[in-house]
């Protein structure tokens, strides 16, 4: 397997792990971590693409994604903390109050 193929397979694997984690976990912090994993998989793909095509400015997009992920983690953790304070149960489904 070529090195590109290896990186590609890693990215796909990471994304699958992340999405399954986001689907199965009910703890908000665990869900956030899964989303981070998915973001990193996407980032890996961006860097790989930039490498293969030889585009330097595409690699800078990966940096933007990193910043975005950090911001998202800050807001997400804040939300998770607020939720825990109000409900005292670290379960995202118990917190549902909307009645459609």
């Amino acid at each position: 397997m070529s090195s590109e193929g290896l990186v590609l397979a890693t990215a796909v694997g990471l994304f699958a792990i992340g999405s399954v984690g986001a689907l199965l976990h009910r703890h908000p912090v665990a869900m956030l971590m899964s989303i981070e994993v998915m973001l990193n998989a996407a980032n890996l793909l961006i860097v790989l693409g930039a490498r293969v095509r030889g585009l330097a400015d595409a690699e800078s997009a990966a940096l933007i994604v990193l910043v975005l992920a950090a911001a998202e983690a800050v807001i997400g953790l804040g939300l998770a903390l607020a939720l825990f304070r109000r409900k005292l149960v670290p379960d995202i489904d118990e917190a549902a109050e909307v009645r459609g």
């Binding site: 995202i92 489904d93 549902a96």
Partner: peptide
């Protein structure tokens, strides 16, 4: 249709995926 808006986050995630 508004029954879809259940507030259950895991269902939302499943729907998105």
């Amino acid at each position: 249709l508004s029954r879809i808006q259940s507030g259950v986050l895991t269902r939302y995630v499943f729907g998105s995926v």
